[in-house]
Structures are given as C-alpha cells and as structure tokens.
Design a protein around this nucleic acid. Structure first.
Lengths: 241, 241
DNA sequence: CTAGAATTAGAACATTTGTACTGAAAAGAG
DNA sequence: CTCTTTTCAGTACAAATGTTCTAATTCTAG
C-alpha cells in the first residue's frame, strides 16, 4: 500500500524546485537539488523524484538534462474524491485577477501563453505572471468570456486534434482550471499516451469518458488517475486566408 | 569590422530559442538548436551563439547544460522584424509575431447576416445595407481581417460542415466575393446537390476541386459551371461552454 | 522482536551536452 | 586576381548530468 503523504524530504525537494525555477531561467539538475536540499546522494534525489512523478507532482522528460518541471494541475482523481491537503504543496496560487477591459466592453485581452501539440505537455505559467509583458496578448470578442476567469490563449500545432474539430494554427481560448463539469470540453493530459487531447468530459462510475467533438468518432474511457485536466476550452478562433 | 546586422542563421536561432522556450519548460540544448534550425554542426551553433551573446541578444550560464536564455523578449522580436527582409528563415514560422500587437490591439465590427446551413442557399443582402440597423453585429479580433473588405458573419446550423472542421453554432467570418484564388477556403453552392459547402478551392483544367479541411476525407471534383462561389472564409469563432 | 518494506549511501556507469580544434569553404576587400 | 576575414563542417574530447546497482540502514506492521 502506497502512502498518500509526502515525506519531508519530498516536500523540501518540491519547494526547492519551485524556488529554483522561479529564480532561474532553467530547471535544476539532479545535483542542484542534491546540494540545494543538503542530500547525500544523487540516487536519493532520483528515488524521490520518481515517487513525486508517480504521484503527479511533477514531470520529467527522460533523456533531457534538466528536463524536470512542476505540474500546474491537480489530479482528476483527487478532485473527484476528497482532495488531500497534503497534495496542495505545488499548487499554483491563483489570484482572482481580472483582465483589463480597455473601454470597449465587447472585447477582452488575454495572454497568449504558447503552443499546444499532441506530444508535448502544457506548461502554463502561474497566472499571477500573465500580466507581465513577457507574454504576447490576444484580443478576443467579449462574448467568448461568459463570466470565466483566468482565460488564456494557445496556438495549435499539428493536426492531432482534428477529431475535436481543431486544426493547425487555430487559437484556442482556455480557462485555467483543474475541475471540469460533465459536458465541458477540456484539455486533458493522458498519462499513458503522454499527450494532450481535447475532448468532451464525462464521468461514469469512477471512470472518465472523453468524447470527441466529431460525433462519428468513438469516445474513450479511462481510469480517473490516468487523466489530468489542464483546463476548459471556452472558445476557438481560426484565421484562414 | 563587425557587421551590425544578424545573419539569417542567427535570426533563425533566436527565433527557434524563443519558440522552444515558449513551448517547453526548459531551454534548448545546442543540439536541439542544431536540429531545429537544420544546421550541420554543433560548432556552428556555438559559433553563432557566441556572436549573439556578444551582441547581447541572449545570455548563457557557462558550465550549466541548457543554460541559455533570452535577454529581452521585446528586443528580440523587434530586431527580427527589422532584419534583412530577403533572408528567408527556414524551418521556423515567424507568424506568431502577429500576436505582438499589445498596446494597440483592435477589433472590428462586422454585420451578422444570418445563418448558413446545408440545404439552404445563402441570401446575402447588398453590402451597402449592412450598416443599417436591421442587422446585428459581431465584434471580431482585427487580426482576422488581414486587409479584407466586405466581411460579414454567419452562424452555422447543423453538423453538415463537419468535414470542414466546422460545427453547429460556429460563427464563420466571410468575405463577400464571387472570385476565389486556389487555396482559399470558400463557401460554394453546388447546383446539383442544392447545398452550400465549405471547402478549400482549387482548379484543375476546367474543373473545380473542393477539398475538405479534414485531410482524411476525399476531395470532390466538379465542372466549373455547377458551382458558384459565395464568398471566402477568412475566419471562424467558436464559443464553447 | 522480526520480517518485510522503504529509504539511504556510495559508487560506477551511460548518456547528454558544451567546448575546442582542425581545416575547408565562402565571402569581402583591395 | 590575392589576401584576409568570416563562416562552416566534422570530429574529438571533457564536463555535466541522469541512471543503475548493491549493500547498508531505517522504518513499520504484526
């Protein structure tokens, strides 16, 4: 039986990683963590990193040096069940920050945070940094907002999401959230396939059903702990020509 | 004497680094850059990185793998924009520069003229009446316009255009025209089937080829006199949730 | 206490990654 | 053209970094 609580060493590692990433433009190496946390061996770091990865506190790109990063999302299963307070250490604090409505109420400006592609995990910076001018921004019609907060935009790379009626170059508008209601279209990370997919979200018993927008294609059914919700899709803008 | 302009290779490297950092949670390695920019040797990357560092386009932490980061994002993009226009940058699209319109981003208002459905012909009022109060209007991001005139919006009814990656409720932005260039996505009226369809337009001999946006579906080939072009699709807005 | 599990320590090893060196090719300058 | 400077290609090597292994140690349920 696996413990559901993190050891003090593991929380220390998580905190160190978070702090490191915030203060430097690259992630820490194993030995950075070893020294930063006063650990005795790289193998201890590796050992604990594997546990943290298993519990979805962070992800690692294998065969990429410094390929370590924090998941900005919570586990679906921990949301459906009662969420464990110990599992909130690396959660990103979400200020309820509103975007400025410059005069015209029919338009809002949201940050453009990067790209979404099949094989690559989404790495969404903490929302309290969205207003810094590191990021580009996109103007979108206000009717897409519908009272949502923490909206951001991503550009789609590749045709892997074509069964969601989404194609190369589309700009998708997402709401950052780890919770989804049945019927929402979500961006979901599939642990096994290691990919992001856009599907309609439903729950059946303790399983998650992901249904493509294209009704001619079949839904997939996955155990809740194999999926993590990255956000809700609230809209899409496509520029042809 | 050192040139004050960046070579095409150097702008490509800069652009790649920017894109890489935006899409991944760690900076690129020398070899990532080499492959991403189609360069032949790590030494070429190193050579150019040194120049870029010298000119203050980026910084490097020595003795740290992937210890590379851009000095100032704004600086970079503005210089890429003004660098040699005849230098083509391979492998990397510069089109995400279109998002760097912060400060002076705009929207435009276009008339909402009604619905588009498979079985019904489009009845578009003459454009000099669009500004009258009979019509609703929609605010759209200015970057969808791209110099087009006579834009209007229609709402999609039914799922008949799903092979164009368009579904019920989508708002499509069209330019009124009866002419189309090969490669345009058009709204075409098919005389025989008596329906409107959205397809990519091409010409082969005296026949018209209409190609679905979904690459897994087959194009159709029709004599030119059986088709009439109703307009070009310049964009699409989808509101989920 | 005791057996099994979890954790740690240390080291060796494998891979990734940065850097240096050579000579060749290309580009300019006169 | 010749000479110089810049840029490139290929390779080799060294440093940084990730991974694995074994045995010791600590922890924990019973």
């Amino acid at each position: 039986m696996k413990k559901n609580v993190l050891s003090s060493k593991q929380t220390a590692i998580l905190k160190f990683i978070k702090q490191f990433i915030e203060s430097k433009p690259y992630p820490p190496s194993i030995r950075d963590i070893k020294n930063g946390c006063g650990l005795s061996s790289t193998s201890v770091v590796d050992y604990n990193l594997k546990i943290l990865e298993e519990k979805n506190y962070l992800k690692r790109d294998t065969s990429v040096s410094r390929g370590i990063y924090l998941e900005a999302q919570k586990h679906v299963s921990s949301l459906i069940e009662t969420s464990d307070p110990d599992t909130t250490i690396n959660q990103i604090e979400l200020d309820d920050l509103e975007f400025e409505n410059r005069g015209d109420s029919r338009t809002i400006t949201i940050p453009f945070l990067g790209y979404i592609a099949a094989g690559e995990p989404l790495s969404i910076p903490p929302s309290d940094k969205w207003n810094s001018n590191e990021f580009d921004s996109v103007e979108i019609p206000a009717f897409l907002q519908k009272g949502k907060n923490d909206l951001f935009a991503l550009k789609v790379k590749g045709d892997s999401m074509i069964d969601a009626l989404v194609t190369e170059g589309d700009i998708i508008i997402m709401e950052q959230t780890t919770q989804a209601q049945p019927g929402d279209m979500v961006a979901a990370w599939l642990n096994d396939n290691e990919e992001v997919t856009l599907k309609y979200f439903q729950i059946k018993n303790d399983k998650v059903i992901l249904r493509p927008a294209n009704p001619t294609m079949s839904p997939i059914e996955i155990p809740a702990n194999k999926v993590s919700i990255q956000g809700k899709i609230v809209g899409l803008i496509r520029s042809l020509s």
